[in-house]
Design a protein around this nucleic acid. Structure first.
Lengths: 120, 120
DNA sequence: ATCAACTATAGACTATACTCTAATGTTGTT
DNA sequence: AACAACATTAGAGTATAGTCTATAGTTGAT
């Protein structure tokens, strides 16, 4: 599929898709047999990757971190051991985030109590 | 206390503290009786606020959102009802973040399984 | 053949959240 | 008095993550 279809399938603008491509998160390929244009073609794995990127971004991972995870999954550039290390690292960062959120929740509940009891 | 002490107590640089002050998150006050300088003085509530800001930032709240929460707690600019609305809104955004993190965790665990089983 | 809708590339612009520099003045210790 | 260490203000610079504009070429339907 071309970039427009990819954009429609994922809800991510073509601009942003190109930005992700420049950032090394995804990669389209050109059809060598077609000489009249240099359009990039994207496959279903790219759709999968973009969906992952959206999800990973909303939990607060940076482009760089997302790139690492994508490489740990879809690429051959790491050994099995390295891949597992990267993924475990991200898992523990998720645990950390969870812990921080639970504490923030407590803090806000305390604020609420103070508001209700006119302590502020 | 002056800005340097505040910085040391909170681990936040004086530059960043001034940035937060300009952003309306905290507020020092000048001593009218002293005419030779215009130094700002900060109290323990400001220390409390800065600690809250650090925590809130690390769970992904923006300066604007943090400002709302601080106003909902330390300010008189909202009614009790409005304050509770703001705080409830932030609580549900935390629930949302929690949900997203749990899903991301599942996804990464799946990646790990695929790596272990040589499916990628 | 024409025209809307698409594509690529380069580069400018924006928002958020800092982070640093420069200029200038103040305070406290020796 | 001198000097380090502090204070203020204004404004410039940085990183991240987009977002938009301009230019130019391509495709597909009528």
């Amino acid at each position: 599929m071309l970039i427009n279809e990819l954009s429609k399938k994922t809800g991510i603008s073509t601009h942003t898709i190109r930005f992700y491509e420049k950032s090394g998160l995804i990669e389209g390929k050109q059809d060598e047999s077609v000489k009249s244009n240099n359009y990039y073609h994207y496959d279903d794995v790219t759709v999968e990757k973009l969906e992952f990127i959206s999800d990973a971004k909303s939990v607060g991972f940076t482009i760089k971190e997302i790139g690492q995870m994508i490489d740990a999954w879809y690429n051959r550039k790491y050994t099995k051991k390295q891949k597992l290390e990267i993924l475990d690292d991200k898992l523990s960062s998720l645990e950390q985030k969870m812990k921080e959120i639970r504490e923030m929740k407590k803090q806000i509940l305390q604020f609420k109590e103070d508001v209700v009891k006119d302590r502020c």
